[in-house]
Each structure stands twice: as C-alpha cells, then as structure tokens.
Amino acid sequence: MAVEFEPKIVGFLCNWCSYAGADMAGTSRMSYPTNIRIIRVPCSGRIDPLFVAKAFQMGADGVLIAGCHPGDCHYAEGNYHLRRRFALLRPFLDYLGIDKERFRLEWVSASEGKRFTEVVTSFTEQVRRIGPRVALGGPRAETSPAEVEAH
C-alpha cells in the first residue's frame, strides 16, 4: 500500500445546481483533491439507492451526493425526495457493514463553487481517515479487477 491511501470517491451531482457549482469551482480555478469522479444526473431525485449501493459494491471508498438547496430544486421537489431516501439508505449501509461516514449528502448551489471545493476536500479527508475498505462480497475491487470483469 502507498504511503498515503488515496480513496476513490463517486459523486452524483444534480445538473442544475451542484454540477454547475462544480463547474463554477473550475471556472474560478479553485483546487480540490483529484479523488472524486463526478456522474451527472438531471436531478438529485433521480439518484436511485441502487446506484449508491452499486458504487460501494464496486469498491468505492466514498459516495457524495449533491443537489440543490431545499426549496431551490429545478424540479420543485426532487431534492426533498432524495433527502428522505438518503435518510433511509444511510442506516441500511451501516447494516451492510459500510461506515455511514463514507456516504454524504450536501446541498451545493450553482454559485457555490467555493462550497463545492470545501465539501469535496473535507469529504476526501474524511474518507481518507477512515481508510480503505473491503468491497462487498470479496476483496477490495482494485486489487482484483478480474472479479469486476466477471460481473
């Protein structure tokens, strides 16, 4: 293992607020760790718990979900649905043996590039502190690509 563990984090970002907020971090030339891989979804309410579970199954060290602030959803109420799902999913992850601290929900608006930077930085640090994890149903995925291929 490397001197410092580099976690792999999947980020699901809503198109209208948080993805734009991440763009804003870029256009403002802010800087955050490279660990996050951003997947764009139209609305945070589009995020099926299955996607999160899948990411953890594949071996993700952390999953970040970001959407519009409550009340600001482009689709009026998608983020409220997400918030409920999040509240249910988190204890379920715990049950699966995945540290709840590896899963975070944040509200980032399109103008909050700085906030996005802070969120990613602190979350990456948090996951780094927790350390690597063992993928569900087998050894850590990174060390065993064959298994992933077989999937």
Binding site: K8, V10, R37, I39, V41, P42, R46, D48, L50, F51, K54, A55, M58, G59, A60, A141, E142, P145, V148, E149, H151
Partner: peptide, 17 residues
C-alpha cells in the same frame, strides 16, 4: 431517457474497469 438506469450503472461500473 438519456439517463437510464443502465447508463448510470454502467458509468459507476466503468470506474473500476
């Protein structure tokens, strides 16, 4: 359409290929 379950799951999976 455009953000199907299959697509989003494939995106997640691709990160470990």
């Amino acid at each position: 359409r455009g953000f199907t379950n299959q697509q989003l799951l494939a995106e997640v999976t691709s990160l470990w290929q």
